[in-house]
Computed example of a mutant assay.
Amino acid sequence: LSFWMFCSSTECKGEEKVTQPPGDVILTQGQTATLNCTFTTISSTPYLFWYKQEVNSYPKFILTRSLHSADNSPEFVKDRFDAELKDSSVPLMIQDLHVCDSAVYYCALSSSSRFFIVKYAPC
Rank of each mutant, 00 (worst) to 15 (best):
L1F: 11
S2P: 09
F3I: 14
F3W: 10
M5R: 10
M5E: 12
F6I: 08
F6Q: 14
C7I: 07
S9T: 06
E11S: 10
K13V: 14
K13S: 12
G14T: 02
E15D: 11
K17L: 10
K17V: 08
Q20N: 05
P22V: 06
P22Y: 09
G23Q: 02
V25W: 01
I26D: 08
T28V: 13
T28C: 09
Q31Y: 02
T34D: 07
N36I: 03
T38H: 06
T38N: 02
T38A: 06
F39W: 06
T41S: 00
I42T: 12
T45I: 08
P46G: 02
Y47T: 04
Y47H: 05
K52C: 03
V55M: 11
V55I: 12
F61R: 05
I62V: 08
L63W: 03
L63G: 06
R65W: 00
L67M: 09
H68F: 12
D71R: 14
N72T: 03
S73H: 10
E75R: 11
E75A: 14
V77N: 14
V77F: 11
V77Y: 11
K78D: 15
D79E: 09
F81M: 04
K86V: 03
S88W: 14
S89F: 02
P91S: 13
L92G: 01
M93I: 15
M93R: 15
I94G: 01
Q95A: 13
D96S: 15
H98G: 09
H98Q: 15
C100K: 15
C100P: 11
A103Q: 10
Y105M: 08
Y106C: 07
A108H: 01
S110F: 05
S111N: 14
S113F: 13
Y120M: 09
